[in-house]
Nucleic acid binder design. Sequence first.
DNA 1: GTAATAAATGTAAAATATACATTTAATATG
DNA 2: CATATTAAATGTATATTTTACATTTATTAC
Lengths: 234, 234
Amino acid sequence: MTQNTTDFYQVKEKMYVATDCIIFGLHEGKLKLLVFKRKVEPLSGEWSLIGSFVRLDEDLEVAGQRVLHEATGLENVFMQQLKSYGKKDRDPGYRCISVAQYALIRIDDYNEQVVEEHGAKWFEIDDLPALILDHDLMVQDALRQLRQNARYQPIGFELLPEKFTIPQLQLLYEAIYQKELDPRNFRKKVFSFNVLEKLDEKDKSTSKRGAFLYKFNYENYQKLLKSGYNFEIA
Amino acid sequence: MTQNTTDFYQVKEKMYVATDCIIFGLHEGKLKLLVFKRKVEPLSGEWSLIGSFVRLDEDLEVAGQRVLHEATGLENVFMQQLKSYGKKDRDPGYRCISVAQYALIRIDDYNEQVVEEHGAKWFEIDDLPALILDHDLMVQDALRQLRQNARYQPIGFELLPEKFTIPQLQLLYEAIYQKELDPRNFRKKVFSFNVLEKLDEKDKSTSKRGAFLYKFNYENYQKLLKSGYNFEIA
DNA sequence: GTAATAAATGTAAAATATACATTTAATATG
DNA sequence: CATATTAAATGTATATTTTACATTTATTAC
């Protein structure tokens, strides 16, 4: 499958810095990861995270946003640095340190065409293909950190549309933690944080009765954070 | 104070990767940070974290251990990656990404002489001098992460000698969280984790009665982690 | 108007966290 | 050797949080 790639290996006499993006999305209550079919040698045709070398005149975060933009067309996406991967043999071609950054996007917002154009595909989190190099490790680390961060930040809101219902929010957390939650207890908990604003609209796409839409109140969230509170949900 | 360093600035045509170490230690119940008086231009004479460029044939973690060893003489120290700092202008001399790693060491183990030789000094955490570049930021980030991690890992044990007393352990957590803890509740909590082994020895350095020494049981800790438990203390 | 469906809600029991004061072991001192 | 001194060690009652669990409600489709 993978052709002989020996030609592409080169002497490691220079240090490179790359950034790789772990792109999470939510679709129909499932947490997904965006992976790309690699188009260049070596390892052409293999599944991979999307990444790029960091430019000399470019901040690290800017590089992450650029990669994300080039790959998806999206801008100003929620993105957070995970950690850097620096085993000396992690990349057979270069001596390369990769700074992994993870992004959360709303799949509904997403221009599906751009995905196709880039040979990209959304995979469900528990059904991922093998990825090149140490990208599998990056994904596992990112998942762990996503779960961890979701305990203390309303990070999940990045994955939902601006207006969302409580059942949607619950599905999101169930997807992140891979565990069913009790709807009564879940509501109690999220309301207790005082960061949801109930709207006068309903979403009737999933039931006859319809579920009220809410939006997130960032001001109250900021207050909550300053008061040292833990946004622990699952 | 700082002399004119213009001579040292150079064209940024190459990417460098460095690692900087945030070295925490515990001494007399106080959490301290090891900082170094910089000996080379630019910014000679200023306080700084200790760091080094990462070598081409060196894993990132190995680079961290090397820096730590060169600076303190210690080996196999607990060390954890914090994050990478990559603003394009963060270092006026080079285009340099720095991977920050933080270490926890037992100041008693420590060869005080080596510290002096390197122009290093232990500062109390709430009385730090200004550091060069973005090192202040690194320290603040590291402190936040130390506090965060201490909630879920018995990270604090790295800062204590192999044998320690409960009051010592409590002082450590009080230093990390900068807050007084109730001795009865603290004991209940740490014992509930089942990771302490009581020894038949006492430490009588702080009281006539003496306090029993304990050691940490890594096996039980591993079990605890696998069962998904939270090692939350403060 | 009846059936169907997901949304919305409350309460009691269990577990956990908090607040708080006394006794104990060992040494030092007169 | 009796007493004073000191930090170590311990238990309990209360408040808070978490968990478990079943019914009613609003709306649409037939």
